[in-house]
Design a protein around this nucleic acid. Sequence first.
DNA 1: CGGTGTGAATCTATTCACAGCA
DNA 2: TGCTGTGAATAGATTCACACCG
Lengths: 213, 213
Amino acid sequence: MAVMPEPVIERLLQLTRILEKHPKELLSSAEIEARTGWSSHTIRKDISYLKEELASGAGYRVKDLNAAIHKALGLETERRFCVVGLGRLGSAYLNFPSFGEAGFTLSAGFDASVNRIEILSSPVPLYPSFKMAEVISRFAIELALLCVPAEAAQSTAEKLVAAGIRGIVNFAPVALDVPASIYVRNVHAVDELRAIAARLNATNEDAITADID
Amino acid sequence: MAVMPEPVIERLLQLTRILEKHPKELLSSAEIEARTGWSSHTIRKDISYLKEELASGAGYRVKDLNAAIHKALGLETERRFCVVGLGRLGSAYLNFPSFGEAGFTLSAGFDASVNRIEILSSPVPLYPSFKMAEVISRFAIELALLCVPAEAAQSTAEKLVAAGIRGIVNFAPVALDVPASIYVRNVHAVDELRAIAARLNATNEDAITADID
DNA sequence: CGGTGTGAATCTATTCACAGCA
DNA sequence: TGCTGTGAATAGATTCACACCG
């Protein structure tokens, strides 16, 4: 199989969101274009990487397509994760629905403050931070949502890496410095606002340039 | 000026995070490579789009570089935003620090439940959802953090668009269907976990393939 | 026909190589 | 000498065009 380009993976991942909620049985590449802005060519090409029989004369069979993407991207394997840092954001994720249905099992929560752990009610066991290494290896936890304050993010990330974690979703607004073998995805509301602001700005500048021409 | 490619914008945006925290006065493209994994060539090329004098024989002047990126990407203009949906996640963002220092002003919070609004303590004024259109236009709010439950996301997004919002950071795990002129950035913990899982999987498959060869 | 599947062509981004500057 | 700046070369992703299938 030709190796799947990075952007293709990102799009297929997003596509599953649409497939999950799609009410009808079939969905054509043209409809996906209208919904996402990606050209129907791109979508057909993306789906062709799956190398499966998914079409039916009038579009893709939604269920089969979704299953094929899950299979190709390895989303079928159940994976365990933990939430580190149980402030407002972290405790919000402790109680977030929809992890389970996506094949992710929340196995533990950690916080530096023993007090905080005792106060919080949680559907999963909570531990003080010093037990991180032990708990992560005992339950074979592979992924972490890092929700500690900015100051603590780097040192906590290092502890996670030492404990054998394989991927981190970083909610703290700092760039983590970890080995290249660890997968990090940054999620910062501020960065997202900035990304939109940069685009609003670009749009305005284009308009100005167009006026001058 | 040659138009700045999309990926360049993303990288420069991320780079500001590193610059903000960098302790020294100078930073070379080689150091950035070690920190981010992007090749020093790519970084120099990216920075060359800024068309400014930023080097000093031994690397870039951190402060100047940061300022130049802010200028080029239009991050200097103060922009107002609101938080829509004040459940656990939304109320966590009401109290998030670091928006202000990045040039974003939180101007309002909205929730469908009047009760909830009265209970919450908040540093900014809170309104019931039916006042969204009025408040957004009165305060010239451009951006929104959408933190409502999945079921309400689409209809709320439509109200935001009608109210004149220009960009949405969507925390609800659904793909929004909005006009192409509205900038949407999706932030879903589940999707980030999936993206990491897909990569873990790819790594394993490569290992297996390598064994076979 | 109204769709998909896919090599080939085009367009875009990254990498290279080396000139030039402190 | 060490590092940036940038046109040119390479690699990579998207788009196209058309064969093919239900």
